[in-house]
């Protein structure tokens, strides 16, 4: 009866559980040294090739797992957006490309975001996954970043962005380009709320992503050897018609040119992020300790601010008077001001 165990059961399991798991026997080749590494060993080493120290790309899920304390985190529910606003097709329909990417990666779009702790400190993080259509920035990714950043504002935590992207998602045209200013609005919310925004630039981060939120961090950390730039090397070569110098647009080059603060080996990334976040949050933590817990008042204010009726907003703009009207229509920038004053709940 062994055939039932050996053939039928796996087949049934495949039908019941169609999700493809990473095969255990997978060998991975290091793109730099050509060395073959057992997948499990690579994963255990945070996808850094032992020996060559090459930093391989990793999935957003793996990244979140390595980042948060004990690998525990709570995923942030990301809003749905209009899919395929342009009804776009190149060789394939965009909707088909999305379907393929979704089944390949088991993600809805290029970004995962989560809340959790880093050495005990509450943090919010978002990760861009290059395997989902090159980590490209479209409406879904833009909305995900805004949602994640605003979650950090609401929870008064630092925000860590792991960027990896080829740039804007061509298939969404202008809607994709508009994610540059849109995400920048959310970066300003973090800034106005006095919360640290740390960007970790991973391989590769280029185009509209570097030309917006990924270059607006309070601190820029780059993983070794990551390609980081505005125009891709191919485009530059075509424009200037010459070969690019060795190491051009790599992390170490950006460090030399003052565009990133520090290049950090993946094994020391957590520790570095933890140090930065805890030091930048030290004053705020003292305040919270003194006033006993986060204040709920500000939370509510942000909730209303997120979804005001357009009419209410315009009314407030027209009237341009009174604190009440302002609070109802406030962007989170007004909550930054609210932070400065003790709210009823924290004062009691």
């Amino acid at each position: 009866m062994n055939w039932i165990n050996n053939i039928v059961r796996p087949k049934i399991q495949r039908i019941l559980n169609p999700k493809r798991e990473t095969p255990d026997n997978l060998w991975v080749k290091c793109p730099e040294s050509g060395q073959m590494i057992y997948h499990k060993d690579l994963e255990a080493n945070q996808f850094v090739v032992p020996g060559s120290d090459y930093h391989m790309r990793m999935t957003a899920k793996a990244r979140l797992g390595f980042f948060f304390d004990d690998g525990k985190y709570e995923a942030i529910t990301l809003p749905e957006v209009a899919s395929d606003p342009l009804k776009f097709r190149d060789e394939k329909r965009y909707t088909d490309r999305l379907k393929d990417a979704r089944s390949k990666t088991d993600m809805q779009d290029a970004i995962l975001a989560a809340t959790g702790t880093l050495d005990g400190l509450d943090v919010v993080a978002a990760v861009q996954d290059f395997s989902f259509m090159g980590g490209s920035l479209g409406m879904a990714a833009g909305e995900a970043i805004i949602t994640a950043m605003r979650t950090a504002v609401r929870r008064k935590t630092p925000f860590v962005m792991f960027a990896a992207s080829g740039g804007a998602r061509m298939q969404e045209g202008i809607m994709s380009l508009m994610q540059m200013p849109r995400t920048t609005v959310a970066v300003q919310d973090l800034r106005d709320a006095g919360l640290p925004y740390i960007v970790v630039l991973t391989h590769p981060t280029t185009g509209g992503v570097t030309a917006s939120y990924a270059m607006l961090g309070d601190v820029h950390i780059a993983e070794p050897g990551a390609l980081i730039g505005f125009a891709g090397p191919r485009v530059i070569e075509q424009t200037i018609r010459e070969k690019l110098p060795e190491g051009f647009q790599r992390s170490e080059y950006l460090l030399e040119h003052g565009m990133v603060d520090i290049v950090v080996h993946r094994h020391r990334l957590r520790e570095t992020l933890s140090r930065i976040c805890s030091m930048l949050m030290s004053k705020r933590m003292k305040k919270v300790a003194m006033t006993d817990g986060p204040d709920e008042g500000a939370d509510e204010a942000l909730d209303t601010a997120d979804t005001p009726g357009l009419e209410a907003e315009q009314d407030a703009l027209r009237r341009n008077e009174g604190d009440d009207a302002d609070a109802a229509a406030a962007g989170p920038d007004e909550n930054a001001a609210a932070d400065e004053q003790p709210s009823p709940s924290s004062a009691s």
């Binding site: 609005v185 300003q188 917006s212 270059m215 730039g229 505005f230 424009t239 110098p245 040119h257």
Partner: peptide
């Protein structure tokens, strides 16, 4: 924006990002 070595060297992406940031502020 111009795609050249010098432009990249001097932080083309950061300059654009800051300019958007400035517009919004």
């Amino acid at each position: 924006a111009y795609p050249g070595i010098g432009a990249e060297e001097r932080g083309q992406s950061e300059a654009i990002a800051r300019s958007i940031d400035c517009c919004l502020a």
